[in-house]
Write a protein that binds this DNA or RNA. Structure first.
Lengths: 172, 172
DNA sequence: TTTAGATAGTCTCATATGTGACTTTCTCAT
DNA sequence: ATGAGAAAGTCACATATGAGACTATCTAAA
């Protein structure tokens, strides 16, 4: 029942993959459980490593990821697509500003809102940790052929676009 | 840019689904990000509700789910397939035992290990919260046809079986 | 046998997180 | 215009979590 460090099964044990198939198929929420299983192994170790290495929290990590491809957004926007609670994103933004990794301007059109922008230092920090995430994603998907990957992403897109139909934003 | 509570877009804003497609496609780790997006909306609200309603923690929730289909396993086994750290699963098991929701026996073959079994009360508690998780999974997947769902699960299985190849257990 | 190292599980401490209340600002119907 | 209610963001408090040390037990090789 044990896996050794490199993921290979010990001689007298079930092989890891067999065991995974067996176990993961057993719950009453098979698909959700399997998504969680794969994602946990992708995300948790990666994010913990970044947290430790760079002294930032998860909301800070995702805020930098988000701002890297779209600036001038608000804390609420980041909540909406990161799944983090607004209190945590708020704290993260305050911390990032304190470290001069982002800048925020009050929206002239709506004084409640603050528009967020990365500083060069913020962009540089992002550039330090994103390659490991990219590489790990590549490894995760390497068991799928190019066409399977396309297929998988297409189905994921469908699921993602459908999210607003069944999950209210204020649930997060 | 805002979604209203029922997920419908306000008249003068982009529609939720368009916006999601647009935003989610922008990161450097598209597929991982999309998996996280969908899963967050599935898992976080559901689990938080269970936590509050029944006064149990996440490790306790997953321990009950796991034991419901396989008993006589150990804390390590649960770590292996839940993605939770052993300290947290350990605390969860201690709490569940205190509440008489599970029972543990020292393994006669290996005195370090404790074999876990649900009590009827534990099974009853599980039965109270699993229907909502099932229903929410159904809603999440309702945008896929039966054959798309099969396809999606097949690809997920492939990814799950491949996990040991790229992620070491001790990373969790 | 003995012993070095691995493994199962628990504990302590520091930190991150969830909840809900709060302020300020905006929106919209009257 | 004005007042009720929604939305953006912050805060304080309690709790859950992550890191890493620790004990006890097992394994395997000399």
């Amino acid at each position: 029942m044990r896996l050794s460090k490199n993921g290979a099964a010990k001689p007298d044990r079930e092989e890891g993959a067999d065991r995974a198939r067996d176990v993961l198929g057993g719950t009453e929420i098979r698909i959700a459980y399997k998504i969680g299983y794969v994602l946990n192994f992708y995300r948790e170790p990666s994010f913990r490593k970044i947290e430790m290495e760079f002294g930032i929290t998860r909301p800070e990590i995702v805020t930098l990821i988000f701002l890297n491809f779209r600036e001038g957004v608000t804390a609420s926007d980041i909540c909406e697509f990161s799944g983090h609670l607004k209190a945590n994103i708020s704290r993260g933004i305050i911390a990032l500003e304190k470290k001069k990794l982002l800048r925020r301007d009050v929206d002239a059109k709506d004084n409640r809102r603050q528009l967020l922008y990365l500083t060069p230092a913020g962009r540089a920090l992002y550039a330090k940790y994103i390659p490991a995430l990219r590489e790990r994603e590549r490894a995760m998907l390497s068991c799928l052929s190019a066409s399977e990957r396309k297929l998988f992403e297409g189905l994921l897109d469908k699921l993602a676009e459908h999210v607003p139909q069944w999950s209210a934003l204020d649930e997060l």
